[in-house]
Simulated scan of single mutants.
Amino acid sequence: MEEVHTVKSYDEELAHLTGIIARMGGMAEAQLTAGLQALARRDDDLAQRVVAGDARIDELDREVQSFAVRLLALRQPMAVDLRQIVGALNISGEIERVGDYAANLAKRALVLNRAGITAPVAGVVRLGEMVRGLLKDVLDAYLEKDLTKALGVWSRDEEVDAMYNAVMQDLITLMTEDPGTIATATHLLFMAKNIERIGDHATNIAEALHYQILGTSPAGSRPKGNTVGGPE
């Protein structure tokens, strides 16, 4: 049962914290979407906007850290309230990393656009769309406090690993058969790895939400595929 507060301002402060996380998450999802579009459409202007937009996510992350520390100091929360504040700190950090990876995608898209793309990008874009779906679902789960939806994201990490492996193998085969694609394919390998890592952060958010709601981690080990070695 959730705690009922007698101080209205405390509820408003917790709602404010959730609101910052919601804005961060929406921006990170938009950044990932735009980064993928910049790659698919060879859109330099869009890629540059993604790179510039990462600073705003960083600002919101710092705002979460500051506000959460203030709440911990002034309210001295316990039980579910403490988990909500600590969970916000953890989730904010995960979203900030998603923003970083989206910006990295855009930076590599700029490099590829200027150098000339000699390898197909469709596989990386499909992987990105799958991961964007996970990110959207876990952010919705956070706002709705929907544990079932969060666990659904957590369990789908294996699907991301499987598609990542397929994209990696296709790119490695392409480089082996056509050395002219090596430069482009190498960038795409890094981009695929960045996207796979965004998927990991989405499942980390699901785990943090599970702990926030129930005070425990999801039962069992996170479903993981056997990912092939790739760039970090």
Rank of each mutant, 00 (worst) to 15 (best):
A202Q: 01
A73D: 01
A47H: 00
P231N: 02
Q212S: 12
L17G: 02
G128Q: 02
A106E: 09
D54K: 10
W154M: 09
M191F: 10
A103T: 04
V69P: 02
M27G: 08
L147D: 06
G230T: 10
L214A: 10
L32R: 00
R126E: 13
A109N: 04
A150E: 05
N90I: 04
P218H: 05
P77I: 11
N194Y: 14
R56C: 01
Q31L: 14
T203S: 15
L82Y: 02
D200L: 11
R62Q: 13
A30Q: 11
M78E: 11
Q37T: 13
V228G: 11
L151C: 06
N226E: 14
G93A: 15
A162F: 02
A115C: 05
E207G: 08
D161Q: 07
T6I: 14
G225C: 07
R23Y: 03
V160S: 07
A22T: 14
G215Q: 07
D146E: 04
I195N: 07
N104M: 09
A219F: 06
L36W: 03
L209C: 10
G230F: 03
D178H: 08
I172K: 04
H210I: 01
T118M: 00
A141Y: 00
D44Q: 12
F67D: 05
H201A: 05
Y211H: 11
D137Y: 00
L143K: 10
L174K: 09
T173I: 10
G87Q: 06
E196V: 08
S155Y: 02
D11H: 02
G215V: 09
V4T: 13
P120E: 13
L72T: 01
Q169W: 03
P223H: 04
R222Q: 07
A109Q: 06
Q48K: 14
D11W: 03
G199E: 02
V86D: 05
G53C: 01
L147C: 07
M191Q: 08
V138I: 12
K193G: 14
A47G: 14
D170E: 15
E63S: 12
V4E: 08
N104F: 06
L151Q: 14
R75P: 00
I172S: 03
D43N: 14
L36D: 05
I57A: 08
A119V: 09
G25I: 04
V124S: 00
P77L: 12
A219D: 09
V121E: 08
V131W: 00
L135F: 08
A103K: 07
A109L: 10
